[in-house]
């Protein structure tokens, strides 16, 4: 079975990789590109640990074929911070102690950022339903929801005209 050459953009950088036709985007990110921040918790789209943004849409990268990334924009956890400057969602996760083991954290942060990119003022219910596709077994979600709400508030403040 011959491999496919895929040309794509990951976190703003042009990337090329070879993959099996059946390989998932998650496998390509982790194994071909060495971006292990996206995690595999289930491989069936149930846990959200592999969440990435593909052309502006939040997806489970374990349910996307690597070849589907051809010509498209992929945003992963590794691109959320700008250089060494953390995104407010990342900063608020730290300030609220919203991670314990940290394994689900990249998926939550990518998903939460995607929410705030669309909806700058989500209610608690909107945060909870948006994040319902991301499993966390450590925190009981309390501090995660608070961190996302707090990040939203900070982003709103930053975006207000001076």
């Amino acid at each position: 079975m011959s491999k496919l050459l895929v040309s794509t953009t990951v976190n703003g950088d042009a990337q090329e990789f070879l993959c099996d036709p059946g390989a998932t985007l998650l496998e390509a990110l982790r194994e071909q590109l060495g971006l292990t921040g996206s995690k595999e918790g289930c491989g069936s789209g149930d846990c959200g640990a592999c969440t990435v943004v593909l052309d502006g849409n939040m997806v489970c990268s374990c349910l996307v074929l690597a070849a589907e990334a051809e010509g498209r924009q992929v945003a992963t956890i590794e691109g959320v911070a700008e250089g060494s400057m953390l995104h407010p969602v990342q900063q608020k996760f730290l300030e609220h102690g919203a991670l314990q083991c940290g394994f689900c954290t990249p998926g939550f942060i990518v998903a939460a950022k995607a929410l705030l990119d669309h909806n700058p003022a989500p209610s608690e219910s909107e945060v909870r339903y948006w994040l319902a596709g991301n499993l966390c077994r450590c925190t009981g979600y309390d501090k995660i929801v608070r961190a996302v709400m707090d990040a939203a508030a900070q982003l709103r403040q930053e975006r207000m005209p001076a």
Binding site: E78, F93, L94
Partner: peptide, 20 residues
């Protein structure tokens, strides 16, 4: 409630877990 010392690695996807 200081920020945990392994925090930034874990919110930026740099921390190396078992499968990584």
């Amino acid at each position: 409630r200081p920020i945990r010392p392994d925090g930034i690695e874990k919110v930026t996807g740099k921390a190396i877990y078992g499968p990584d």
